[in-house]
């Protein structure tokens, strides 16, 4: 059920305090310098692996590629059974049935993008049927995109109602709402879109589709983490955050974890409340994990490309 907001939605969203742009950037940059080594690094790497939404959203995706990626999601490093599985596999709706068969009984989640990903420029009916098909095919998580055009035009009610309608279609499936922060331009907009999505019933708010540059950045994620933290304080409901796109190295991933701990708190340091949308990141995490184990730097030749 969406929250009831007293007065107009527009007045509410514009009444949110503005974001201090320079302050947010400095805070994110400051936290990014924190040094995580040895045992802490080992734990961070394993946690990051458990938080990965292993993603393939290409026009060239084939059933074979999806099956290969599903195998990798379950057992990221076939040579080392101590490596945990990732949180979920993220695919296009037409690949859900293939992925569902490959993931059956493994405990790895199955996320699907829906609602006219990545642009979201279709009618509400199409978006809803897109969502319904995805849920029916077996997706346990739905990544929807908001209508950025409507949001930027100030038509907040339209965006709100769409999220509410899609959430209704989702049923048991978790709903992640992609804000596409790269197109929202300002941090104030990111904060407004975050609160709007949370009030409309989002289980997760996600930074980007990965198809727009800039994708996830530390300052944007910081603003969104503040939103879920303050939203929980205000309403008692906890929601998650998922930065996606452009997170490629272990160093990047650990910076996000530091941000989660410092901004949202320990409660969010869990795959249920924080995810990393990525594809190439997983190999780097595995390489760093091997390095910690053997003491020797590993190379990309030793890991699968997809």
């Amino acid at each position: 059920m969406p929250d009831t907001i007293p007065g107009s939605l527009r007045a509410y969203l514009h009444g949110l305090p503005g974001v201090d742009e320079v302050g947010v950037q400095r805070r994110a940059a400051g936290l990014a310098t924190r040094s995580i080594k040895t045992t802490a690094k080992r734990q961070a790497i394993d946690l990051a692996i458990r938080m990965v939404d292993l993603t393939t959203l290409e026009g060239a995706d084939t059933p074979g590629k999806v099956r290969a990626l599903a195998a990798k999601a379950v057992r990221p490093d076939p040579a080392d059974p101590s490596v945990p599985s990732v949180a979920a596999l993220c695919v296009y709706p037409d690949m859900i049935s293939t992925a569902a068969r490959a993931l059956a009984g493994t405990g790895v989640g199955l996320a699907s993008v829906a609602t006219g990903f990545p642009a979201g420029r279709t009618s509400l009916e199409v978006k809803l049927s897109d969502t319904a098909t995805a849920v029916e095919a077996g997706a346990s998580e739905i990544d929807m995109v908001i209508d950025r055009g409507a949001f930027l035009a100030g038509d907040y009610a339209k965006v709100f109602d769409e999220i509410v309608a899609v959430k209704e279609q989702c049923g048991e499936a978790h709903l992640k709402v992609i804000l596409e922060t790269g197109e929202l331009v300002t941090y104030d907009n990111v904060r407004r879109a975050s609160w709007l999505a949370l009030h409309a019933g989002a289980d997760f708010i996600k930074t980007s589709t990965g198809k727009v540059t800039p994708a996830a950045t530390l300052p944007v994620t910081l603003v969104m983490l503040e939103a879920v933290r303050d939203y929980q304080a205000a309403t008692g409901r906890q929601a998650g955050v998922k930065p996606a796109g452009g997170i490629r190295t272990t160093k990047d991933a650990i910076r996000y974890l530091v941000l989660v701990k410092e901004i949202a708190g320990d409660d969010w340091l869990d795959p249920a409340w924080f995810r990393l949308g990525a594809s190439t990141l997983l190999n780097d995490l595995l390489m760093q994990r091997t390095k910690l184990g053997t003491g020797q730097y590993s190379g990309p030749d030793y890991y699968t490309i997809d």
Binding site: G295, Q296, Y297, S298, G299, P300, D301, Y302
Partner: peptide, 9 residues
């Protein structure tokens, strides 16, 4: 030693 042990060399 790190150069000799590096898997990508």
């Amino acid at each position: 030693p790190p150069l000799a042990g590096h898997a990508d060399v």
